[in-house]
Design a protein around this nucleic acid. Structure first.
Lengths: 115, 115
DNA sequence: TATTTGTATAAGCATATAGTTATATAATAA
DNA sequence: TTATTATATAACTATATGCTTATACAAATA
């Protein structure tokens, strides 16, 4: 539904500030192609679980991601209905694919799959 | 010269952090259509001259803008040869035009014109 | 040369940010 | 029910950030 005309400067700068963190930017790039659960992010990034949770919270508060429980896991996905989805998709297209990180996870047997 | 394939995550997050400030983001949007000198920015934004200089310094250090002296003024322009020019242009396309700010300046007789 | 004007840098301060550890909550499994 | 697993929140800390004022520098002009 990209009827997005133009966005508010204040809000966009807040969104960009959020994406101006390597961890959150990488999260969004990963979420562009798959949903991920918190423990996957913990395995991927060298960071404590609370650290990961706090990053996800910020992305969720900004409406960029959504959470949904699946069994014992909470999965995060990109919110493609966000007012900023178009901007973000454009942006992510400039970034290198991060699939290898998920492949590594799989190799370590840490990939959660409950699609 | 958009032969840009994909950029480094670390560097892009730094660029986005820079643009994650309303003042700098607006500066870039303004520079997308005209070069501006420091005193114009000072008149546009409600901020001290050193504050403006410091924002411009950060944009320059990141290679996003260039400076050039014209008479007594130093003009800043968008660096369209930057590795990030494509990303930034895409991004700026989502933002509202900021021409009115320059029009206001002109109305106040504060617009510098030495094209 | 001395003065003025435009811009940059230095120093300091208040707030924001990203991380940590400890703890709470919530769902599942024993 | 109790224990375990997954996630969230709280509290704290160190560092980064954005702004200010004071000062330096550099070009233009008198």
């Amino acid at each position: 539904m990209s009827v997005e005309t133009s966005l508010d400067m204040q809000k966009v700068s807040q969104i960009l500030k959020l994406l101006g963190d390597k961890t959150r930017l990488t999260m969004m790039k990963l979420l562009q192609s798959h949903d991920c659960c918190v423990c996957e992010f913990v395995a991927i990034f060298n960071m404590s679980q609370p650290g990961i949770s706090q990053h996800l919270r910020k992305l969720k508060d900004a409406g960029l991601v959504q959470e949904s429980r699946r069994g014992q896991w909470i999965f995060y996905s990109m919110n493609r209905d966000s007012e900023y989805a178009g901007l973000i998709e454009d942006l992510l297209e400039h970034l290198p694919d991060q699939q290898e990180r998920l492949v590594e996870l799989e190799a370590q047997g840490l990939r959660i799959s409950c699609e």
